[in-house]
Design a protein around this nucleic acid. Structure first.
Length: 871
RNA sequence: GGGAGUUUAGCUCAGUUGGUUUAGAGCAUCUGCCUUACAAGCAGAGGGUCACAGGUUCGACUCCUGUAACUCCCA
């Protein structure tokens, strides 16, 4: 069978993924092994695969595949999140395209459209993860609105209500005027925004005097309830207790004093609009001011505004500025940049608003969660996120859990026309409860129209995917929970991670996971966030198609140090593809040997085999250490070097037979063994090519995917050191060849002057092959008319038929000599410092003496060589 | 305004409790090679006063103080 020129990723990816599925390798059921569990952060059901998912899920797949190969019962649970706001927005847009307005539909009609949409388009992302090679247990796929899951969310709401943790209250919330819903603080993105600061004159009642205030929101003046100045502000002391007149509508408002006002900002006089600003609301409460809400739900002005009724808030801002100017109220405007809140989902400016909502009192349930992370019961990688977490937890505010949406978990609250309400699972229970609580029988109750925040369901994820709440103490939850590793983005540390920890302790009495690995944010080459509007986010499926899934995984992993952002560059995928190619070609080389084996044995390849065997052990141990510390990118880099440099460039070249020469069977078999081990090491990172090579190397009945890693031995350091020496010698001699512009085909004669003959005898055949020497012998003295290379304590004389020009050689040696001499001086200086010799540890001292001796010896050797050249 | 973090080669990053031959990779660059596994390759090379200024120490990329720039979070 002839091998294709390059690794054919498309064919192999499909072939192996379906093979793995057929064999049910990703399926996990409880057994006697130790579990290793990861729950996937559920992507939005509306989502499509992007770079962030690619990074996140590749990391999880690497961890889970490694655990599987280490003999754990690996279980990786997939699923999707119903994403209430995002999905509802998509469904509304879809309906609009079909000419259907949401307002024309009943709740049930709308929901049936939504489910239809979800069945059709939801979960595309899960299919795309298969392309990446993710080894998920698909039978466990969970959706946050599955029946059991839905019920758990509702039951937990009721439970928390009973415990008094959830309450209903009128508070300032963030209002999304496009999605027409409340948002939690975490769903508001603050952005630096250029605005204008308008200076407006308000007349003082009963005088010809004015007071000038500064505002960025002139459209809200109709909602003004007061003007506030600092009590110590001399400019305004005479106005305390007087009244001002709101321009255009001539409403009379008091002038109050409060030290909340910053005297040096604007004019030092602040207009107070309690209905439309969080701070103003607080001020209004304190001074018992009137609350005038001038906006409708959709951000247009209401009747209460008296003017501009029905117009959008930003349109009014423009128009009212003009009118104020025309009528002489606008004194001046200045440029002003400040942070403005935008809705995470719809990107419209959020409107602070007073509203009746459901709240979750966080203080009650957050303290075990804070403690767990601070005491490293749950470990954060990298640990710097502990600080971020603590800061938030210590300043935690109540969570607004209600959303004015239909798609989601409907709040189980039932209202009577009297305004009284109960919280109950269904209408029947509600009526019964209402009777006991309010002594009204057969009451007509209406269920709350609103849904719960999406995160109110996501926070149950680590246990409810195993039905830990809906079916307590079942075999799965007892076996898989707490899960091992959560891999997620730092952006959702508050939205999700913190709340999962709270829910875990509240409902399972146990932490949800042992450790959290925070990935970085994927950015483009210039360090900008990937975004639709910038058009800088590449089409991942196209990239997988072009470079292969293994290359894509390589590309994203090689540049992603733990906890740092990743600057994504397509060149990294190219590097991954080239790596595939390299591996494939090594296979081609070895396959050429397969039919050319001989039973004859010599010991000339013993060194190569022993060395590589030890190198493999050494690197496996290094990789294991790195993986434990989540240094995944370093681990991959290490494996890459082992395969490309140590295996391909050194080992294979060392054992490679001459043109059409046979290879010893024992060398061939060892080589297959090494290649197999290499593929096993690589498998978690690049599963497809490694599985394919595994099967190409030998006929096998098993698969690499589930092959158990062997116990680690310890490497022989002497062998490793000799390998390093050999590489140095080869490079050194090649350097001379290069500098002398010898052709690769030109033969040389090599003379070695060494005190360590036996070592070089065993390296003889490798050396002659690697530096193209047709003769190697030992010398006790300088060899005339040769080039010299000094490596360590040994000298190498290179004889060629070329005319000898020693000038380049000489200057190189002189440069080396200078370097050594100044090095020696620095060492000697250190050693002559009495304080150093008194204070330094013995081992450090010994090392310095060794440095000194080595340097002196080398200087001696080089000086001798230089002398010979002159002679 | 408060808090956290970062600053090491052209780029992306390692550098463990201060001492391991006067700082290590990968990519990029340069030179020479189409050597029958691989030009998506091979061989070799060059490149850094570790942001800046002080301090502690026999000794600082590493610890302390300050400055600057950038990033993130919170108000």
């Amino acid at each position: 069978m002839t091998l294709s020129k390059n690794f054919e990723h498309q064919i192999n990816e499909n072939k192996w993924y379906s093979h793995w599925l057929d064999k049910q390798y990703f399926k996990s059921t409880p057994d006697e092994r130790t579990p290793y569990t990861i729950v996937m952060p559920p992507p939005n059901v509306t989502g499509v695969l992007h770079m962030g998912h690619c990074l996140n899920n590749t990391i999880q797949d690497i961890l889970i595949r490694q655990a599987r190969m280490k003999g754990f019962n690996a279980c990786w649970v997939p699923g999707t999140d119903h994403a209430s706001i995002a999905t509802e927005a998509k469904v509304v847009a879809m309906l609009r395209e079909r000419g259907i307005a949401k307002s024309s539909l009943s709740r049930d009609e709308f929901l049936s459209y939504a489910w239809e949409w979800k069945e059709k388009y939801g979960g595309i992302i899960l299919q795309q993860l298969k392309k990446l090679g993710c080894s998920l247990d698909w039978d466990r796929t969970t959706f946050t609105m599955d029946k059991d899951y839905y019920d758990s969310v509702i039951n937990i709401f009721m439970d928390l209500y009973k415990k008094g943790v959830i309450y209903r209250g009128k508070r300032m919330i963030n209002w999304d005027v496009k999605a027409l819903t409340a948002l939690s603080d975490e769903e508001v993105i603050r952005k630096e925004t250029r605005q204008k600061l308008y200076h407006l004159n308000y007349a003082i009642e009963g005088t010809n005097d004015n007071i000038t205030i500064a505002t960025v929101r002139p459209e809200t003046i109709m909602g003004d309830a007061a003007i506030c100045v600092h009590p110590d502000d001399e400019r305004y002391k005479h106005l305390h207790g007087k009244f001002a007149i709101v321009p255009l509508i001539n409403r009379r408002i008091p002038i109050i004093a409060d030290d909340y006002v910053a005297m040096d900002f604007g004019t030092g006089a602040l207009k107070v609009t309690p209905a439309h600003d969080v701070n103003d609301y607080a001020l209004g409460q304190k001074h018992q001011l009137e609350i005038v809400d001038i906006f409708n739900d959709n951000g247009t002005l209401s009747e209460d505004a008296q003017i501009y009724i029905g117009l959008d808030r930003f349109e009014v801002r423009k128009k009212i500025a003009i009118e104020l100017e025309e009528k002489g109220f606008l004194i001046k405007t200045e440029e002003y940049t400040s942070e403005v809140g935008y809705s995470e989902r719809t990107d419209v400016v959020v409107e602070p608003r007073l509203s009746m909502q459901w709240w979750l009192s966080m203080k009650d349930i957050s303290s075990p969660a804070l403690k767990a992370v601070m005491e490293e019961e749950i470990k954060f990688y990298p640990p710097k996120f502990k600080n971020v977490y603590r800061h938030w937890m210590e300043n935690i505010k109540d969570w607004c859990v209600s959303r004015q949406l239909w798609w989601g978990h409907r709040i189980p609250a039932w209202y009577h026309e009297s305004g009284k309400f109960v919280v109950a699972k269904n209408e029947k229970d509600a009526i019964a409860l209402f009777e006991t609580e309010h002594n009204i029988s057969n009451a007509v109750l209406k269920q709350d129209e609103d849904c719960l925040d999406t995160w109110f369901s996501s926070w149950l994820w680590p246990f409810e995917v195993f039905k830990g709440y809906s079916n307590p103490n079942n075999a799965d939850i007892n076996y898989y929970y707490p899960t091992n590793t959560l891999v997620t983005a730092p952006e959702i540390i508050f939205f999700w991670v913190a709340r999962m920890i709270m829910a875990g302790y509240e409902y399972m009495d146990v932490k949800p996971f042992q450790e959290v690995y925070f990935t970085g944010i994927v950015r483009d080459k210039q360090g900008r966030k990937m975004s639709k509007s910038l058009g800088n986010s590449p089409d991942l499926l196209e990239l997988i198609d072009q470079y292969g899934a293994d290359a894509a995984r390589f590309g994203i992993m090689i540049a992603s140090p733990a906890g740092n952002d990743i600057l994504f560059d397509e060149a990294a995928l190219e590097q991954g593809r080239n790596f595939n190619n390299k591996i494939w070609n090594a296979l081609k080389l070895i396959k050429m040997w397969e039919a050319r084996q001989t039973e004859e044995t010599t010991n000339e390849n013993d060194f190569a085999i022993n060395w590589f065997e030890n190198r493999l052990i050494e690197v496996s141990i290094e990789v294991e250490q790195m993986m434990k510390q989540f240094k995944l990118s370093e681990a991959l880099k290490t494996i890459y070097t082992l395969i490309w440099d140590d295996f391909c460039s050194w080992y294979l070249e060392w054992v490679k037979p001459g043109f059409e020469q046979p290879i010893q069977a024992n060398v061939y078999n060892k080589t297959i063994e090494f290649f197999t081990d290499l593929m096993q090491l690589l498998h978690p990172f690049m599963p497809f090519i490694s599985e394919e090579i595994y099967h190409q190397l030998e006929e096998r009945s098993d698969d690499l995917c589930v092959r158990l890693l062997a116990e680690k031995k310890s490497p022989n350091q002497t062998q490793l050191d000799q390998g390093i020496l050999l590489k140095q010698v080869i490079s050194g001699i090649r350097d001379v060849r290069n500098k002398q512009q010898m052709k690769p085909k030109d033969n040389i004669k090599l003379f070695i002057q060494t005190e360590n003959k036996p070592v070089f005898e065993s390296l003889n055949s490798i050396l002659s092959k690697q530096v193209n020497a047709n003769e190697i012998s030992f010398a006790n003295d300088v060899v005339a008319n040769s080039f010299t290379s000094v490596i360590g304590k040994d000298k190498f004389y290179i004889l060629t038929e070329q005319p000898i020009d020693l000038s380049t050689q000489k200057s190189a040696l002189e440069k080396e000599l200078n370097h050594l001499k100044s090095f020696l001086i620095s060492v000697e200086k250190k050693l002559s410092n009495e304080k150093f010799t008194q204070n330094a540890k013995q081992e450090i001292l010994d090392l310095e003496y060794k440095k000194k001796a080595d340097a002196e010896m080398k200087i001696n050797i080089i000086e001798l060589s230089l002398k010979d050249m002159v002679g």
